[in-house]
């Protein structure tokens, strides 16, 4: 009876993971399929789609003619990186400072303030996107990389705040007192005691902000200008003209990149223990 249940559980587990990972697995497999017309039918192994997206000529390009300009793709990648890196920097500094302030000081309406910091996380993206668009337009700001960065910072600061706050909650406040007692002023205490102890949280928050910023489509779609297309917006534009094989290669490269960033995060978390 018991064994049977375990058997069922195993089947369920396998089915569950298959459900999650099969689509991703297919994308990776298709990215190596030489068939330019129907990617569901395997017609041999090729790296042509990768060559295409990185701007090298390939035998199959004639048939696909899909990425009209590799320049456009590369520019979207560059935009995405600029946005993600700037956003990560700004929101990590802001989110960490706010988390420290909320944890350290007693002030009126603290609970309310904390709730305000959580709000952007549950706010629907589409609402945030529309709101930001209206905001920028009514202030006469032109849409571009700057508007995207500001938009991303508004909600990613919250994410960093929450991750760092969790880390701070587990930190013994008497350590800072011990540091002061031993003669360290506020800044030295922050540098030598507080920051090293919350660093795993700060790095975790920064990586999260980076990944979400790189990945965001809905909000960015509203607030990006004509020549400030980011990678997700660019891919979305491609898809509207039909699914072509290069898309699989782009997706696979992005997947690899995300894995790298995530492993970095796990590595720092493990070291923080």
């Amino acid at each position: 009876m018991f064994r049977k249940r375990i058997g069922l559980l195993a089947v369920y587990g396998i089915a569950f993971f298959a459900f999650i990972y099969a689509p991703i697995f297919l994308v990776v497999v298709y990215s190596f399929n030489a068939n330019p017309v129907n990617m569901m039918i395997w017609s041999g192994f090729t790296l042509d789609w990768y060559r295409t997206i990185f701007g090298f000529s390939a035998a199959t390009t004639e048939l696909s003619l899909y990425v009209e300009s590799t320049d456009q793709l590369l520019r979207a990648v560059r935009n995405s990186l600029i946005v993600a890196l700037t956003t990560t920097l700004v929101s990590t500094v802001l989110g960490t400072s706010v988390a420290l302030a909320v944890a350290r000081f007693r002030f009126r309406l603290k609970a309310f303030y904390r709730a305000l910091m959580f709000l952007p996380m549950i706010m629907p993206d589409i609402v945030l996107g529309i709101a930001l668009l209206i905001f920028f337009v009514s202030f006469g700001m032109s849409l571009g990389l700057v508007s995207i960065i500001i938009g991303h910072c508004t909600f990613l600061t919250s994410y960093v705040f929450i991750v760092v706050s969790a880390r701070l909650a587990g930190m013994d406040m008497s350590l800072e007192e011990a540091s002061a007692d031993l003669g360290a002023n506020g800044w030295v205490t922050f540098r030598k005691v507080t920051l090293p102890l919350i660093l795993p949280g700060v790095i975790g928050g920064a990586l999260l902000a980076f990944i979400i910023s790189m990945d965001d489509l809905v909000i960015t779609y509203f607030i990006s200008g004509v020549d400030s297309t980011t990678l997700p917006v660019f891919i979305y534009g491609m898809l509207r003209r039909g699914i072509k094989p290069e898309i699989n290669a782009i997706a696979t490269v992005m997947l690899l990149f995300s894995f790298l960033v995530a492993s970095l995060g796990l590595y720092f978390r493990a070291r923080g223990r």
Partner: peptide, 26 residues
């Protein structure tokens, strides 16, 4: 003045020597 805290409040990210030498380092 210096304090010995009830829960010791040793810095977990430093080894024994760095903990002990903290006030001198600062």
């Amino acid at each position: 003045v210096n304090t010995v805290f009830q829960n010791y409040a040793l810095f977990p990210h430093m080894n024994v020597a760095r903990n002990v030498g903290y006030s001198l380092e600062v």
